[in-house]
């Protein structure tokens, strides 16, 4: 095994030149090209590297899975100004809990589960804060960070309205509902992700659907979307 990198730093950083200078052209001039070689590790090897805390493995893990985690976060949370904090929290928890993952195939579902539970903590904390008699000083400020330029007004309104309905749901119901209908998971996957029985998952989804419909019917645009869905179904 060669010297550790920190040792090589000490060894080579300030060492005076011992050999005559090479007149060959610099290597970088010959071969400084951008490569498109994909990261070759399989999930098995990646998991092994993560558990061994190999340098670079965790950032590869982040690069490979962060877009998926962010996609799940967006669906369960909606547009939210704390998405970045949540994303970072999910990976910080992954760092702590990776030793519990035994099977590389479970890596993605495990990360999805971490994502959902991390979101649940934040949503519950917000609910509790909203019950405090002093209210939440930041509530007014916690607006949806809409893009300001090209996005259609209708889409922005839809996001705002759906988020408002989701915010009104029970937190666990909301998570089960969004995983089922927005993330498109099977019922068994919802139950597995939320660490609950299949019947509980079904019950929570059904309750959220009823509440979502009740609230959506009070809004013309959301009512229209629901009606389109019904027509499509029939």
């Amino acid at each position: 095994m060669g010297p550790r990198f920190s040792q090589t730093l000490e060894m080579w950083a300030f060492e005076p030149r011992r050999e005559p200078r090479d007149t060959r052209p610099p290597v970088a001039a010959l071969a400084r090209t951008s490569l498109t070689v994909p990261f070759p590790q399989t999930d098995d090897r990646l998991l092994e590297s993560l558990r061994a805390r190999r340098p670079g493995a965790w950032l590869h893990f982040y690069d490979a899975f962060a877009p998926y985690v962010l996609s799940v976060l967006r669906k369960v949370m909606g547009p939210d100004r704390e998405l970045e904090d949540l994303l970072q929290d999910v990976f910080a928890r992954a760092l702590e809990g990776i030793d519990r993952v035994r099977d590389a195939e479970k890596l993605k579902p495990w990360l999805r589960s971490l994502t959902v539970f991390t979101s649940r903590e934040l949503l519950r904390r917000r609910k509790w804060r909203s019950w405090l008699p002093l209210g939440d000083a930041d509530a007014e400020e916690d607006v949806i960070p809409y893009p300001t330029t090209t996005d259609a007004l209708e889409e922005r309104l839809l996001l705002r309205k759906v988020k408002a309905v989701l915010d009104a749901l029970n937190v666990d119901d909301r998570l089960a509902f969004t995983l089922r209908h927005f993330e498109g998971l099977e019922l068994t996957e919802v139950a597995e992700t939320m660490k609950m029985s299949l019947s509980t998952a079904k019950r929570r989804i059904a309750r959220a659907e009823a509440e979502f419909k009740r609230r959506a019917h009070a809004d013309r645009d959301l009512r229209g979307c629901l009606a389109e869905g019904t027509e499509f179904a029939s």
Binding site: P67, L87, P147, L158, H181, A216, G229, T230
Partner: peptide, 25 residues
């Protein structure tokens, strides 16, 4: 489930247009 199909698709499409993805990542 299909009742929520349209709303889910539109919601996902609108979320996909959020421009802060790269920044957040």
């Amino acid at each position: 489930m299909s009742e929520f199909r349209t709303i889910g698709q539109r919601y996902e499409k609108a979320l996909g247009k959020q421009r802060d993805t790269r920044n957040i990542l």
